[in-house]
Design a protein around this nucleic acid. Structure first.
Lengths: 163, 163
DNA sequence: GAATGCGATGTTATAATATTGCGTTCATTG
DNA sequence: CAATGAACGCAATATTATAACATCGCATTC
């Protein structure tokens, strides 16, 4: 784990995918959950892309590989992966990304570049704390937080300066 | 209808809807935008419900009133209302709510009760600040923030205690 | 008053996303 | 090995959203 490489930073992508898969195996093993071939393949596709993938993107990729998959196949795999904290759903995009902190408790939080479509997952305790505090002041019992920030990543800001 | 409680607080609902419509008229007037009958009716339906309404809920309501509306009619009205800050889209629900702070600059932020489905919109500067800070630390230029918190409102927490 | 431009609306079709239900297969365990 | 339950295949359908193009009404201008 540690040192998780990020979209905005060059990294050895193959290694990063392998690491994610290895983590997933470990996590599922510990949870007595079955990381079946389809589930693993879906997770791998998501990590390979490193950008949010829609369910039907995944479906298309599986179809190309000869797996005769229907929508439920993909949605079930995604449900499983979400339940085990291996992927996140980005509500504002109807798409899925690999979880950068699988296995850790965290309130994820996403920076979504509208230009290059990369997504950076942060785990910012001070943000989570501010949110919890605001909720508590209303007597609200928070269970699940969706926090997605669209904008421009550093690289794409430079790009748009050139115009 | 009647007596639909404003999220977590009793209030005169008819007056609350009227107020929202009056505000909307003023805001559109100031912006030289046309709050046409369909747009106004959609906004009114949203406020009357006081809970998130889906586009097809609205479509159904319009149909019942004899308006022969197709999906684009509703989506266009919703686009207009969003652009003028009169409604918000709740990404995690694919639904729409009236904006509680129309006309004010704000980064909205929603507490969504999973039991009664009421939504409370907050404008919490300290949360917005924490989010901006975290984004800036990554060099990310934030443009649009989606912050939606699902959980249980105070009333529904008491309900579930009774079980 | 005809011509023009333009925002709003109507209409049809279709795209994109997601779920239900049911029967079958397969791994595990007793 | 039989029973169990999770996972999967498959067909159909539900839900959410957009594209493309025609039309209407109204203000401006000639």
């Amino acid at each position: 784990m540690s040192q998780t490489p990020l979209p905005y930073r060059a990294h050895n992508h193959r290694a990063c995918v392998d690491q994610a898969l290895a983590d997933a195996h470990r996590i599922c093993n510990d949870a007595h959950a079955r990381l079946t071939p389809t589930r693993e393949r879906v997770l791998e596709l998501i990590w390979q892309s490193h950008k949010p993938l829609g369910a039907y993107d995944l479906l298309g990729a599986l179809a190309q590989e000869g797996q005769n998959a229907a929508p439920p196949t993909v949605y079930r795999a995604l449900d499983f992966l979400q339940q085990h904290g291996l992927v996140h759903r980005i509500a504002s995009l109807n798409a899925f990304v690999g979880c950068a902190h699988a296995g850790h408790r965290h309130t994820g939080f996403f920076l979504i570049c509208r230009a290059c479509r990369n997504v950076l997952e942060l785990s910012a305790p001070q943000v989570a704390a501010a949110v919890d505090k605001a909720a508590q002041e209303e007597g609200f019992a928070a269970e699940d937080t969706t926090l997605e920030i669209a904008g421009l990543c550093p690289a794409c800001q430079r790009e748009s300066d050139h115009d």
